[in-house]
Amino acid sequence: MLGFLLRRALWFAITVWIVITVSFFLMRAVPGGPFDTDRAIDAAIEKNLAARYHLDWPLWKQYLQYLGPFNLDETHGATLAGGDGSSSFGGVLVGDFGPSFKYRDFSVNDIIAQSLPISIALGTVALAWALLLGLSAGILSAVWRGSGVDLGLRLAATTGIALPNFVVALFLIVLFVFEVELFPVAGWGSLSHLALPGLALGGPFAAYIARLTRTGMLEVLSQEYIRTAHAKGLPPRLVLLRHAIRGGILPVVSYLGPATAGILTGSLVIEKIFAIPGTGTHFVNSALNRDYTLAMGVTILYTVLVYSLNTLVDLAYTVLDPRIELEEA
């Protein structure tokens, strides 16, 4: 277990390092990129940038400066201007992503701190929808295999996987906002603001989870130990709950990693459609507005997030399936 976590941490460090390095050099490599001096940007930001990134330094030194809490500045010492011009600069390794290119008064950290909780709330709601709908549909489908219910659910699942989430979102809006008037149109404020976007975001994943669950459940239900459980005189409910579901949803557990990554990605579109001021919206805007530090910050942050969640999922898997050893990961 400890060995597993240590190994994971090592690969994690390597992965994050690669992402940081690649994005840093990409940013520098593109001609006319953010650090081109002849760009017309706000003077105050320009000053921040110059102070922060030491554009006069050699590239390797700039890189180290961006990367981590290294004190490379002989003249000023460790107290350099931070994103808001006051705090000292630490570098990405200590979670400081620097000043924003677009929002003069905010550092990337400020923006993320404001928007991430919103995105995480949205993602959680979406995942909850995905699991709720996907698992129950998959289990029903498997238990009533071949019935009309099964057929309908499978059709819905196939359609759900195929449709882009913004199409789903559009239908949901038309249906629940304009026709039935159950939910607010867009924006952010209360949980009811998240229900619909969460459904639109989680929908395709619900469909995929339903499919995985159905396959997994059918596999398990055909196992001999299910027959043993019946032969022991267990009531069907107990056979399902105790003996079948756990094994049946194992494939779903390993899908949770990719699903979270997918939900984070999908939230870019959903946040835009529903005008939710989450990290996704900021990220898209940053890409459109050339707010490079913000784009980089979000990319790195989401890498960390996805990696940690994947590790968690692997741990959860071993708890659920005693046969799996953590060694080979």
């Binding site: 196992q223 001999e224 130990y225 027959r227 043993t228 459980a229 032969a231 105790r242 003996h243 756990r246 094994g247 659920l320 399936d321 005693p322 046969r323």
Partner: peptide, 12 residues
């Protein structure tokens, strides 16, 4: 049953 390998639930 025949196969004790598969007749017991591996997860419990």
């Amino acid at each position: 049953f025949q196969d004790p390998m598969t007749s017991l639930n591996p997860l419990l």
